[in-house]
Nucleic acid binder design. Structure first.
Lengths: 155, 155
DNA sequence: CGTGAAACCGAAGTCCT
DNA sequence: AGGACTTCGGTTTCACG
């Protein structure tokens, strides 16, 4: 995992369908060398796959919200994970420090749909209370680059 | 945008490097037909691109946090967006309803790094206060499927 | 708008430096 | 480990139903 690997990953994040020759030109390597490194990055798990970047609005998912979950005393993260995985609207979720136990990111078709999802979540037996915020406008979407900085020591 | 398009998008979300023939076999179309639809989906903006799925931890980004921003009275979303775009650790951001004005998702190398980012964010002139939660464990990562349900009326 | 065939070009494997 | 070459398969385009 050196500079070259990070440059290659950066190129693949920008365009996962770039040809090995194009990537090689960008990072200063031949196509074969790039392929070898990409194969290795996939084997080691640094790259877990390739996906299409979709505009959720184009599919009808026009509304998103963040929902904080306050859970009953002895609820394990695993228990929360299993339960919320049943709700397809939950796009991302994690346990966090602070007052709330978990933070969920949900995507829905409209505000009414958001409401229904929150109701369904609140109905989970271990959920004591929820606190939700509807997204007004998205400022930054995501992966502009994970690999551009020195990314510190590790890896 | 019909059932076929959504199935194709679903296939591409799962594996953006799948061949047109493979996708065609899955959705019941020939390779050429699939390519034509994919081209159209890209032109109309439903598909915005293809990216690699990376395990941030493999690149040294082992810590993430969510930061709520409380801004000065007359701060516009655009102003917030421009300012936070200068912080490379901000992976996602949006304005929200509720007490806070904006919610930021940041990725950092360690907790010390998180602290520095929060300090830098708090130093922005329009930021009155911040409230942050460090992620303990991730339960759901993301795009398992955006296109599997009927996705309601629109689109 | 779908299918099937032909030309092109990148991918995958091998050998050499 | 990187670079060059060859074979194979996918992509792309075209004509047709």
């Amino acid at each position: 995992m050196d500079r070259l690997d990070r440059d290659i990953i950066g190129a693949l994040i920008e365009d996962a369908r770039a040809t090995y020759a194009e990537i090689g030109q960008r990072v200063g390597l031949s196509a074969s060398a790039v392929k070898r490194r990409v194969d290795r990055l996939r084997e080691t798990g640094a790259i877990t796959g390739f996906t299409a970047r979709v505009q959720p609005a184009a599919l009808g998912w026009t509304t998103e919200a963040y929902v904080e979950l306050f859970c009953a005393g002895k609820t394990s993260p695993a228990e929360i994970g299993v339960a919320i995985a049943r709700h397809p609207e939950v796009v991302s979720a994690c346990t966090i420090t602070g007052e709330a136990d978990a933070l969920l990111h949900i995507r829905a078709t409209d505000v009414r749909h958001v409401e229904r999802v929150i109701e369904r979540l609140a109905a989970e037996p271990f959920v004591v209370r929820t606190k939700s915020s509807v997204v007004l406008s998205r400022l930054i979407d995501a992966p502009p680059a994970l690999a551009r900085n020195e990314s510190a020591s590790s890896a």
